[in-house]
């Protein structure tokens, strides 16, 4: 009886389960895979005057001959340009360098903060987490403009330092890569704190006590217990900061000068000023491939860890 009932309900139930799984895939295809394919397609196109500023353009109903003709117009010249001109390589390297530095800084600042929140009395933790995320309540642009006011030669920071007698001449931070670094670290700090907090909060506090009890100094206990058990959070936080930081456009545009080379700006210049859509699309595609490397490395390490756990 029961078996029959289960079999009767099985088909719709299984269909329902499939549908639930299909929804996110449809989402990913519509809003990630498809746009990305369009970008790749544009990157393989050729610049031209007109609207849109590239060819070939495919229309539905063109027929197979037109399609074949279009396909033959595809070219890799945009990619060739990227590899030919040093400025692209410099922009990529400089972006990776600034993003890496910013990631290290957010980790150095975020880890102690996350640890302090995770070890705070339980009833305070939600409030402290809200405070860590609180800057998000203000517009991102306004916060970056505020940093201009702080970092300018005649800004708040220099004013305070000179009044305190610590320096005689104002520090030139604004419009340098240091200002970009400060802006990125400040803006992305919550993305570092949240996964770290998540990893640290789950740790049994008795583990550190056990380590201390067994003769480990507080530093040794941190190095051997707290840190290794939070590595997943560290990796997640670093990826969450590093990946968007590499492609960051607004912060270098507002806080940096034209000599702070970042790939986001190169992309924007290519797209708007030069009206070179295929070039911009190629820059974006190469960036994605560059960023895919650390993500896949991370996922592989996760899989291996899972495999080892079994």
């Amino acid at each position: 009886m029961q078996n029959n009932a289960a079999a009767g309900a099985g088909l719709p139930a299984r269909l329902g389960r499939r549908l639930v799984l299909i929804v996110p895939y449809v989402w990913l295809i519509l809003f990630f895979a498809l746009p990305f394919l369009i970008v790749v397609k544009i990157s393989l196109s050729v610049q031209r005057d007109g609207r849109p500023p590239y060819e070939p353009v495919f229309e539905l109903g063109d027929g197979l001959v037109a399609l074949w003709g279009g396909l033959q117009k595809f070219s890799t010249e945009s990619y060739a340009a990227i590899f030919a001109d040093r400025i692209y390589a410099d922009a990529y390297l400089s972006s990776l360098w600034i993003a890496a530095l910013a990631t290290l800084c957010t980790l150095a600042i975020g880890y102690p903060l996350a640890l302090a929140i995770a070890r705070a009395p339980r009833r305070w933790r939600p409030l402290l987490i809200v405070l860590a995320v609180a800057p998000f309540w203000t517009s991102f642009l306004i916060r970056i403009y505020a940093w201009i006011v702080i970092l300018k030669d005649e800004g708040l920071l220099n004013h305070a330092l000179i009044s305190a007698g610590l320096i005689a001449e104002p520090l030139h931070i604004y419009a340098t890569q240091w200002a970009v670094l400060i802006g990125i670290v400040y803006s992305y700090l919550p993305f570092m704190i949240l996964p770290l907090y998540n990893a640290l909060e789950k740790q049994d506090e008795a583990l550190v006590e056990a380590a201390l009890d067994l003769g480990a100094t507080p530093f040794a206990a941190f190095r051997q217990i707290t840190w290794p058990l939070s590595v997943r959070g560290v990796i997640a936080g670093c990826l969450l900061v590093f990946i968007p930081a590499v492609g960051e456009y607004v912060i270098p545009d507002l806080l940096g000068s034209s000599d702070v080379l970042m790939i986001g700006r190169t992309l924007w210049d290519e797209f708007s000023t030069a009206r070179n859509w295929p070039g911009a699309a190629a820059v974006a595609t190469v960036l994605l491939v560059v960023l895919l490397a650390p993500i896949t490395a991370y996922q592989r390490s996760q899989l291996q860890r899972k495999g080892a756990g079994r």
Partner: peptide, 8 residues
């Protein structure tokens, strides 16, 4: 605790 001859 890490200097006490006590374990738990």
């Amino acid at each position: 605790p890490y200097r006490r001859p006590v374990n738990m």
